[in-house]
């Protein structure tokens, strides 16, 4: 179950000479340039006042933070940040707790109907998101949750995928651990909390990062269930900003930088965890 992403040992024999390596570096650097250009354009344009931008004058002498100040004046980014943080943290914790409890039961408890229910769970993995989008919107509205935190958070507590991933992992832990603990009089809840959870640290961390960045970047659901400025998450807020200032590029880029910077900083600091989390989860825990 370990995902090894960056082991320089055990690779295919390169058989590349010095020139081959140089050529490869040239190709990789071109790729780097293509991937990073959008970020650079975003940064440079965010620092350029509108007049200089229209005159296509990108000299660093013009750089200023005015666009950022103006963006913060026009858009409540602080509020968007707060909402995105509250929603992402709550969904991540809630989803992992709920999925982990269910996964523990599916993997390590024996009760009637367990396997049939799990199969039913798996079968629904096939259903695409657009099918449940409309009824879930109507259900949320019916519950009186429209345009509120519960609308953004509660549906995220449940995930077939996370349950499946954790169940696969819990199946792999030795059953003897539970049996020994039961001999000592431990309850199932205690076995889950004190044995199974501590043993699944890496997989929980990987899943947490996967869930967190998925919720943080999610766009369609918060777009559908919120309407007031106060309830917007960062992607939805950024999108409405596009509607208002479709060609005020300096402001739009400043907004994008504000939206991205913290995520990218965390990503660069914790890169290994991001890559492993997404690889592991992306491959369904194989």
């Amino acid at each position: 179950m370990t995902v090894h992403v960056s082991t320089p040992t055990g690779q295919a024999p390169t058989g590349l000479g010095r020139w081959g390596r140089l050529a490869l570096h040239a190709v990789l650097l071109t790729g780097t340039l293509l991937m990073i250009t959008p970020f650079l354009v975003m940064l440079v344009v965010s620092l350029i006042p509108q007049e200089a931008f229209l005159a296509r004058d990108f000299s660093p002498a013009n750089f200023s933070l005015n666009n950022f100040a103006e963006t913060f004046r026009q858009v409540p980014f602080g509020r968007y940040y707060f909402n995105s943080t509250v929603v992402s943290v709550s969904v991540t914790i809630g989803q992992i707790l709920v999925s982990s409890l269910a996964a523990f039961a599916f993997a390590r408890l024996r009760f009637r109907g367990r396997d049939a229910l799990f199969l039913l769970y798996l079968a629904t993995l096939m259903i695409p998101f657009p099918v449940t989008l409309i009824p879930n919107f109507l259900i949320i509205r019916g519950l009186g949750w429209y345009d509120s935190y519960p609308a953004l958070i509660v549906p995220g507590f449940f995930s077939v995928f996370s349950t499946f991933l954790l169940r696969q992992y819990y199946r792999g832990l030795p059953m003897e651990l539970d049996e020994a603990a039961r001999m000592d009089g431990a309850s199932s809840l205690r076995i889950w909390w004190q044995i199974v959870l501590p043993l699944s640290g890496p997989v929980l961390a990987a899943l947490a990062i996967f869930v967190f960045q998925g919720v943080w970047n999610d766009f369609l659901w918060p777009l559908v269930v919120t309407t007031s400025v106060e309830m917007r998450t960062i992607p939805v807020g950024l999108n409405s900003f596009v509607g208002q200032y479709s060609t005020a590029w300096g402001l739009l880029m400043a907004g994008s930088v504000i939206a991205l910077l913290p995520v990218l900083v965390i990503y660069i600091l914790a890169q290994r965890w991001f890559v492993e989390g997404i690889t592991l989860s992306g491959m369904g825990g194989r």
Binding site: S6, T14, L24, Q213, P235, M253, S256, Y267
Partner: peptide, 27 residues
Amino acid sequence: QALRGIGFYRLIYFMPVVTTIVAGAIV
């Protein structure tokens, strides 16, 4: 391949994956 700077390339290539797609679309 056993090259220098693999970590750097991977860092950059993976960066768009963690980017908010709305910001990417604006750029």
